[in-house]
Amino acid sequence: MAAATQQMSSLPSGFRICTTAPDILYLPELVFGGLVWILVASTLITPNNPQGWVMFVSVFCFVMTFLWLIIFACGGHKNSSAWATADFIYHLIAVIFYLSASVILANVTIGMKDSASLKYYQIDIAAVVFSYIATLLYFIHCILSAVRWKSF
């Protein structure tokens, strides 16, 4: 009976996801990921290919995090250990994606310092800052998900 109680507390559902770690990080991940998406979309997209990767990562992680939040909020995970594993793997992939996108975005921003208008340069700087914040949030979520997965 104690094991069943521990499983219930390992994967919360409903509004409890807004009060437990690491699930409380879903909302900040959505906010900062959405800001990256909006800021990169509002800048002058040069060069196209690296900025395209940043857009893909921010949109992909935003949509997947929103779906993940809905699945956990509706209780669709049924408290199985497979969902704890999938949560850890998804956030690990998100960290790798966001870290690569953040580095690329910072490199593109440094490169456009002299060639772009001040407005686009400042927007790109804000996008870089929010991208690294999103990376940090996904990293913390990944670590806490790994701890939860190991204790499951």
Score class of each variant (00 low, 15 high):
residue 108 V to P: 12
residue 67 L to V: 15
residue 85 T to G: 15
residue 121 Y to E: 11
residue 93 I to W: 01
residue 14 G to Y: 07
residue 35 L to Q: 02
residue 67 L to F: 07
residue 63 V to E: 01
residue 135 T to Q: 05
residue 101 A to G: 02
residue 63 V to P: 06
residue 150 K to G: 00
residue 127 A to L: 06
residue 61 C to V: 03
residue 25 L to N: 04
residue 90 Y to E: 11
residue 64 M to H: 05
residue 139 F to D: 06
residue 95 V to T: 15
residue 36 V to C: 02
residue 24 I to H: 10
residue 16 R to H: 02
residue 39 L to M: 13
residue 104 I to V: 10
residue 17 I to A: 01
residue 67 L to P: 15
residue 32 F to V: 10
residue 44 L to H: 13
residue 33 G to I: 10
residue 52 G to Q: 00
residue 18 C to Q: 09
residue 134 A to E: 05
residue 40 V to K: 03
residue 57 V to Y: 00
residue 7 Q to G: 05
residue 83 W to R: 13
residue 151 S to H: 08
residue 148 R to I: 08
residue 138 Y to E: 04
residue 102 S to A: 10
residue 151 S to T: 14
residue 46 T to L: 07
residue 97 F to D: 03
residue 34 G to P: 02
residue 10 S to Y: 07
residue 20 T to H: 14
residue 135 T to S: 11
residue 93 I to H: 11
residue 22 P to H: 07
residue 98 Y to R: 13
residue 94 A to V: 08
residue 146 A to R: 05
residue 132 Y to T: 05
residue 10 S to G: 08
residue 20 T to K: 14
residue 66 F to K: 02
residue 88 F to T: 02
residue 98 Y to D: 11
residue 23 D to W: 03
residue 58 S to T: 00
residue 63 V to N: 06
residue 8 M to W: 12
residue 31 V to K: 03
residue 44 L to W: 10
residue 57 V to S: 01
residue 93 I to D: 03
residue 105 L to N: 03
residue 53 W to G: 02
residue 143 I to N: 15
residue 145 S to L: 07
residue 23 D to A: 04
residue 48 N to I: 14
residue 28 P to C: 14
residue 2 A to P: 01
residue 34 G to D: 03
residue 148 R to H: 04
residue 60 F to E: 06
residue 20 T to I: 02
residue 148 R to V: 10
residue 148 R to W: 00
residue 66 F to I: 11
residue 75 G to C: 05
residue 147 V to I: 06
residue 99 L to C: 06
residue 107 N to W: 14
residue 115 S to M: 10
residue 82 A to L: 15
residue 61 C to E: 08
residue 102 S to Y: 01
residue 39 L to W: 01
residue 4 A to H: 11
residue 140 I to Q: 14
residue 69 L to G: 09
residue 94 A to G: 01
residue 77 H to T: 06
residue 75 G to E: 08
residue 127 A to W: 08
residue 42 S to V: 00
residue 125 I to V: 15
